[in-house]
Design a protein around this nucleic acid. Structure first.
Length: 658
DNA sequence: GGACGCTCAACACG
DNA sequence: CCGTGTTGAGCGTC
């Protein structure tokens, strides 16, 4: 149960963590003058089409899409599109989105369960437009923030809708319901089609629903695989392809990470018919025509590839793989003997890795020995069910200084001497909508996790089922108590000590790990001792406070003030700890902490559990916001140690943390 | 501008 | 776990 003692000088340095360096904003786009805004267009803000650089994956900075070429992208970007109040949206523009959704009945946005099920649930209420969103969603000029904000809000909505629907027998598809609400409120980024990079979306970004890519302007169609600018909106009067989704719906394709053979649409393949049999020749129209024209024009095309992910109910995720160009096209015979169009796309050079990262981590998971530069195959010495390997690809450090790996916290007094939680009387498993479940009651009336184990919303405290409960270990209200389920690696960062990342893609709301160590309270701990590798629950960052932002859109009261209360506990992981002790700080984190109770009832000393703020691609460093604790101010005064200088370098960096 | 039709979803059911 | 049936959204097109 102990990790090897290592001796490394700089281990005494706290792992400071910069990261997510967003590209500086360019004052004006480079020579982009064409605007294909399919719509009239709202008050847009111009942002460099080059998007941001590294972030997401810690990959080398920025790839610049081909320049100058005739057919180039445009640069209009709407930040999270609210009905800006400072810019009195004015009569000039707002028309765009209002008029658009008319074509067909929309999903109902409210949760009045009265009108749920008539036989033909046709006329459902369309999502309500919330008027004053500006307070909830301050508009951001930073494209990455806009995109993240849209996705985070969407998923919060989706999880909440799923939770609400479970108690009724309402139709599912919470993704579409949430998407409809987002669209109705113009909560989206990058409206209008563009060629090339999409500001705020980075290569390697992952998605779990097609509608997510639609909302951030990466790929507009909700189902179709080819996105294109229609003929009327282009200068040449020819349709122009902008992006494709390669998701295995057609024969062939795939193969390498550098190229792709893509099959055209139509002819009866795809999903139109259940048998998926082609019954007609494909025609050179719509997406096929657009691809053909793009081939001749040589314009860039975004490629989104899908990958198998068994943790996800749909069984796949989407990975943005960057820009490609069509190298050749031809007509082929499909299995059914009808003509199909084929397009060979070549990946542009010098781009950060996209699908390649995923392929590599999959291989590592299958055979961990194939992971190179390993210092130690399992830093947990077998205590975790999944090994945590230690790697160094950047320098000569041999590993962190000695500590004892422990999957559980160590309290000053025994758990037995603490008050016990009350238990529910649910047989087998707790079910949503069961008013008698006392555990649900403790959690504000709902089970805190979705059926797939995702945290629905942040709360001051989450109560899991426990040893006093009648339900079994299969109950869905037992998530964090079961420990980590991800393939972690502790790795050497560049200049910030050791860090933590995962081989698995992580969906927003996923439980990541507990912060284990020796639990003290403030008084007992205030001895000016070494405070590296310690956790304090005195601060929650803004992004985490906003993680729940579904409620307002559903007309539910905002509970931001209730989702955080400071706790007296301090967890020291200097001598005893787990993977959490390697998580570095960021002012733009992808992980947050959440108090959880599951084995005792001492409110001041809950377990500190970490969850994903957003979808996290494999090999992305996991970080949370350390905050600035008042006790650190005290220790500064005492001359022991002050806040650390933050190196995260994002525009909103506070400068210090710890 | 409105309705219709197209499409490498997503999920439930057996 | 799989096939497959069902209800779909945005957006181009007419």
């Amino acid at each position: 149960m102990e990790a090897r003692p290592f001796n490394s000088k700089e281990d005494t340095v706290l792992d400071v963590k910069p990261l997510r360096c967003l590209a500086p904003m360019f004052p004006a786009p480079y020579g982009f003058n064409t605007t294909f805004t399919t719509s009239g267009s709202a008050p847009f803000v111009c942002v460099s089409p080059f998007g941001s650089s590294t972030s997401g994956n810690g990959f080398p900075p920025s790839f610049h899409p081909a320049n100058g070429g005739a057919a180039n992208g445009l640069a209009d970007v709407s930040p999270i599109n609210l009905d800006e109040e400072p810019e009195p949206t004015a009569h000039t523009s707002p028309s765009v989105k209002k008029t658009r959704r008319r074509g067909r009945p929309r999903l109902r946005a409210d949760s009045s369960e009265t009108d749920v099920s008539e036989k033909k649930p046709q006329q459902r209420k369309k999502p309500r437009k919330i008027t004053d969103l500006s307070l909830i969603f301050p508009s951001s000029l930073d494209p990455r923030e806009s995109v993240e904000g849209v996705l985070m809000t969407f998923d919060a909505l989706r999880r909440r809708l799923l939770q609400l629907d479970e108690t009724t027998d309402a139709t599912k598809r919470a993704d579409l319901k949430a998407g409809a609400i987002m669209m109705a409120n113009d909560l989206r980024a990058n409206m209008g089609k563009r060629i090339g990079a999409v500001p705020g979306v980075e290569i390697g970004d992952i998605f779990y629903f097609r509608i997510e890519m639609c909302m951030v302007g990466l790929h507009a169609p909700s189902m179709a695989g080819i996105d294109y600018i229609n003929a009327k909106s282009t200068e040449t009067d020819e349709p122009t392809a902008v992006s494709i989704v390669s998701a295995g719906g057609y024969e062939n394709e795939d193969g390498d990470v550098d190229f792709l053979i893509y099959t055209g649409q139509g002819g009866g393949t795809g999903n139109k018919h259940a048998d998926k049999k082609q019954f007609d020749d494909q025609k050179l129209e719509r997406g096929n025509l657009a691809l053909e024209k793009s081939f001749h024009k040589g314009n860039l095309i975004r490629v989104i590839r899908s990958a198998k992910d068994m943790n996800c109910i749909t069984g796949k995720i989407y990975i943005y793989d960057g820009l490609y160009k069509i190298q050749e096209s031809w007509i082929d015979k499909g299995k059914s003997g009808f003509n199909v169009f084929k397009y060979k796309l070549l990946r542009e050079p010098d781009q950060p890795e996209g699908i390649a990262v995923w392929k590599r981590t999959e291989q590592w998971k299958a055979s961990p020995l194939s992971r190179g530069r390993v210092i130690l195959p399992d830093i947990s010495s077998g205590v975790e069910t999944i090994p945590v390997c230690l790697v160094n690809e950047v320098d000569d450090a041999k590993g962190p200084s000695h500590f004892t790996y422990a999957t559980k916290v160590r309290h000053l007094r025994s758990i037995d001497s603490m008050r016990a939680l009350q238990g529910c009387k649910c047989l087998s498993v707790c079910l949503p909508g069961d008013a008698n479940c006392s555990c649900a009651q403790q959690n504000e009336g709902s089970l805190p996790y979705s059926s797939s184990g995702l945290l629905v919303s942040r709360k001051a405290v989450v109560y899991e089922c426990n040893s006093s409960c009648a339900c079994s270990v299969n109950c869905r209200n037992r998530v964090t108590q079961k420990g980590v389920k991800l393939h972690f690696e502790v790795f050497r960062t560049r200049g910030r000590g050791w860090g933590l990342r995962s081989w698995d893609p992580i969906r927003a709301g996923t439980f990541i790990c507990e912060y284990t160590g020796e639990v003290y309270d403030k008084v007992a701990a205030d001895d000016g001792e070494e405070e590296h590798y310690s956790f304090r629950a005195t601060y929650v960052d803004e992004k985490t406070l906003k993680w729940n932002h579904g409620p307002e859109l559903l007309g539910e009261p905002s509970n931001q003030s209730e989702i955080f209360k400071p706790l007296p506990l301090i967890i020291r992981a200097k001598n005893i700890g787990n993977v959490a002790r390697f998580m570095n700080h960021s002012c733009s984190p992808n992980v947050f902490w959440q108090p959880v109770m599951h084995d005792h009832a001492e409110e001041g000393y809950p377990h500190i559990m970490f969850f994903a703020i957003k979808h996290i691609p494999p090999m992305t460093e996991l970080t949370f916001d350390y905050g600035v604790s008042s006790s650190n101010v005290l220790s500064t005064l005492a001359g022991t140690r002050g806040p650390m200088k933050c190196l995260c370098g994002i525009p909103k960096c506070r400068g210090i943390f710890g």
